[in-house]
Design a protein around this nucleic acid. Structure first.
Lengths: 219, 219
DNA sequence: CCGAAGTAACTGACTGGTCAGTTACTCTAG
DNA sequence: CTAGAGTAACTGACCAGTCAGTTACTTCGG
């Protein structure tokens, strides 16, 4: 009870760095819930139990605040994905690992996830969140190609054809994963295990068969 | 100089209905390019070479205008998709048809397409564009299940298991299709034929193998 | 055919509210 | 007692929505 805590034991005065962290956290939640345009600096300040002016002592503009928030998310998520892919043994393994990372993240950080899917395709907010999409795309492509690049039996030309095909596969994998996670969040009655498994199988099978050169049969 | 044409022979005064159509068209373009929040009524009016006040004689609010625009898009697109699916013979055929519709639409109506992908996951604008996603989902599920529903050899129980699996497949198909179209729009050097074909094969193969009960092999 | 009366399309200039960003100040921990 | 954490109150720009009036077109009595 002694010291700088207000009622309910909430710390009122904080050192600069700690306050900054708290503000970022609160801003993430607000942006995630309402989206960029409907979130006012006032909202962020109020949610942090702080005045708007103080917020401006930490971040020079709304855009900067948003950029900082998204940067943290992008860094975190791509980091986890890369890690997962690197630890994986085969490509089925890699796919499962990536999907698991996405489900984990969406579950643990729903606001961050909402922010990501909401703003992924909007050029409007200065700092590009589309970057995330591209970085994810790169991670996917790497995963697809790692084994083949290491294969000495493949000629340079064959490898290039493969790269091109792989690049076309990226948006397909990418889109279906994100879409599945979003769908599952809105259908919590479906066991996560099933949703995850379905995604892994769908993507892996489509992928593997294509890699094997299988083609569409005429019906 | 005489009559109701301005310079360059552009008709200035129009009958109510025609003006309304023009305004909707212009609004679609503006919303598609800038997104809802960054589009001002002023912009729409200016693009139509008309005063803001006139715009308000046709649409009572910004939200209403937006709702009317999206409704038209949703109607058009779902109509085309249903038509395509109904005309298809098998499910591979149906998938190809749907993908073709999406590519056609995105090519022919880039602004409408931009509007759709941009606002698909935003609860913020009163009238739900998410409805489109759901309607599309329904169309997909129907496509997947049509044949099986008609199969008298399947028991009711087996059918229900299938329905459940099919519902899980919808977001996967849906997400990969939309994602592929968006990707292709940003990579115009890739021949549309290739992008389309890749999507068809990826989706159909994943689908077909799952239907056949194939499982993930251990690597 | 003509012109005045009527009407629908249209506009410029305004208002009220909102919100990013600022200023000038107070308070307290160390 | 002071630096820096904090705030209340303010400003200026912007923008959805309105209103009082103007202009182009139609109609109809003569």
């Amino acid at each position: 009870m002694i010291g700088d805590t207000g009622e309910a034991g909430v710390r009122r005065r904080m050192p600069h760095a700690r306050r900054r962290e708290q503000l970022l956290q609160v801003a993430l939640a607000e942006f995630g819930r309402r989206g960029y345009h409907l979130t006012q600096m006032e909202h962020v300040a109020a949610a942090a139990r702080v005045s708007k002016a103080l917020l401006y002592q930490h971040f020079s503009s709304k855009e900067e605040l948003f950029a900082e928030v998204t940067e943290a998310i992008v860094g975190e998520l791509t980091g986890r994905l890369n890690e997962a892919v690197l630890a994986a043994h085969g490509s089925a393994d890699g796919i499962r690992a990536m999907i698991r990372v996405l489900f984990d993240y969406a579950t643990a950080e729903p606001d961050a996830w909402a922010l990501v899917v909401r703003h992924l395709d909007k050029p409007e907010v200065g700092l590009e969140l589309r970057e995330l999409r591209d970085r994810l795309g790169t991670a996917f492509a790497d995963l697809l190609l790692r084994r083949r690049r290491a294969d000495p039996a493949l000629s340079q030309a064959a490898l290039e054809v493969n790269e091109h095909r792989a690049r076309l596969l990226v948006p397909l994998m990418y889109g279906s994963m994100l879409s599945m996670v979003s769908w599952w969040l809105e259908h919590p009655d479906t066991p996560r295990e099933r949703a995850e498994q379905m995604a892994v199988e769908f993507i892996w099978l489509g992928l593997d068969r294509l890699r094997a050169g299988e083609r569409l049969p005429r019906e």
